[in-house]
Simulated assay, not measured.
Amino acid sequence: MHILWLIMGLLGAIWVFWDTRKQGYTRESSVRWAIGTFLVPAAVIPFYLMQSTLRNKFRRSHPTGPRDVTSNISLKCPWCGEFYQGNPEHCPHCKKELKQD
C-alpha cells in the first residue's frame, strides 16, 4: 500500500514538473513545485491547478505578443477611390489588382 502512494506521488510530481516547464516556469520553480507535489500532494496539487488556471486566464485576457494592427486600417483603392480594410490582392469594389510586384 505504501508503494502505491509513493508511485502516485512520484507520478504527480513528474506531471507537475512537466506541466510547469510547458507553461514557461523556470527549472528551479518547476523543481520546487514537483518536490512540493511529492511531499504534500493533497495540498499542493489543488493549489497548483487553481493558480495555473488563473494564470492561463490572465494570459488570454492580456496578450503580450505582437498584434496585427493592419487589419483595422482602411486604405483607399487607387483605381476606384473606395475604402477597404485588410490586405486583399484585389479591390473588393472594382476587383482590380492592388498588389504589384
Score class of each variant (00 low, 15 high):
residue 78 P to M: 09
residue 53 T to I: 05
residue 54 L to T: 05
residue 101 D to N: 14
residue 73 I to W: 10
residue 19 D to L: 08
residue 31 V to P: 09
residue 86 G to M: 10
residue 53 T to M: 01
residue 37 T to D: 03
residue 26 T to E: 10
residue 70 T to F: 09
residue 4 L to S: 02
residue 39 L to G: 12
residue 41 P to A: 01
residue 31 V to C: 08
residue 66 P to V: 06
residue 49 L to I: 06
residue 72 N to R: 14
residue 72 N to M: 09
residue 31 V to K: 13
residue 19 D to M: 10
residue 88 P to R: 01
residue 55 R to Y: 11
residue 69 V to D: 14
residue 22 K to Y: 08
residue 86 G to A: 12
residue 58 F to L: 00
residue 22 K to A: 06
residue 83 F to W: 00
residue 57 K to H: 09
residue 22 K to L: 09
residue 30 S to T: 05
residue 80 C to E: 05
residue 100 Q to T: 07
residue 61 S to W: 00
residue 39 L to C: 13
residue 61 S to P: 01
residue 13 A to T: 11
residue 16 V to W: 01
residue 75 L to D: 00
residue 98 L to F: 15
residue 56 N to T: 12
residue 89 E to Y: 08
residue 53 T to F: 05
residue 47 F to N: 02
residue 83 F to C: 00
residue 1 M to N: 11
residue 28 E to W: 04
residue 63 P to L: 07
residue 72 N to I: 07
residue 83 F to T: 02
residue 79 W to Q: 14
residue 79 W to F: 15
residue 62 H to R: 15
residue 99 K to R: 12
residue 30 S to R: 09
residue 80 C to I: 07
residue 98 L to N: 13
residue 29 S to P: 02
residue 52 S to F: 01
residue 48 Y to S: 01
residue 7 I to D: 00
residue 32 R to A: 04
residue 79 W to H: 15
residue 96 K to S: 07
residue 72 N to F: 10
residue 74 S to E: 15
residue 100 Q to M: 07
residue 42 A to E: 06
residue 46 P to T: 13
residue 62 H to K: 10
residue 85 Q to I: 13
residue 94 C to P: 10
residue 54 L to I: 03
residue 99 K to T: 07
residue 14 I to C: 04
residue 84 Y to K: 06
residue 62 H to V: 03
residue 68 D to Q: 12
residue 50 M to V: 14
residue 88 P to D: 03
residue 48 Y to G: 04
residue 56 N to V: 12
residue 17 F to Y: 04
residue 30 S to V: 02
residue 44 V to T: 14
residue 43 A to H: 01
residue 29 S to W: 00
residue 22 K to M: 05
residue 23 Q to G: 15
residue 18 W to D: 03
residue 75 L to P: 01
residue 73 I to G: 11
residue 38 F to N: 04
residue 42 A to W: 06
residue 37 T to V: 14
residue 61 S to Q: 08
residue 101 D to E: 13
residue 97 E to L: 14
residue 78 P to T: 05
residue 76 K to G: 05
residue 79 W to I: 13
residue 12 G to L: 15
residue 79 W to P: 12
residue 36 G to H: 04
residue 26 T to C: 06
residue 37 T to P: 09
residue 67 R to I: 14
residue 47 F to H: 05
residue 54 L to G: 03
residue 59 R to Q: 06
residue 74 S to D: 09
residue 23 Q to T: 12
residue 11 L to W: 06
residue 71 S to N: 07
residue 8 M to N: 02
residue 63 P to R: 08
residue 96 K to F: 11
residue 35 I to H: 04
residue 80 C to S: 02
residue 87 N to Y: 09
residue 98 L to W: 12
residue 42 A to Y: 09
residue 85 Q to N: 15
residue 87 N to F: 15
residue 24 G to S: 13
residue 48 Y to H: 08
residue 29 S to Q: 01
residue 41 P to V: 03
residue 61 S to A: 03
residue 37 T to N: 02
residue 90 H to C: 02
residue 42 A to G: 11
residue 54 L to E: 03
residue 43 A to N: 01
residue 84 Y to D: 08
residue 32 R to P: 05
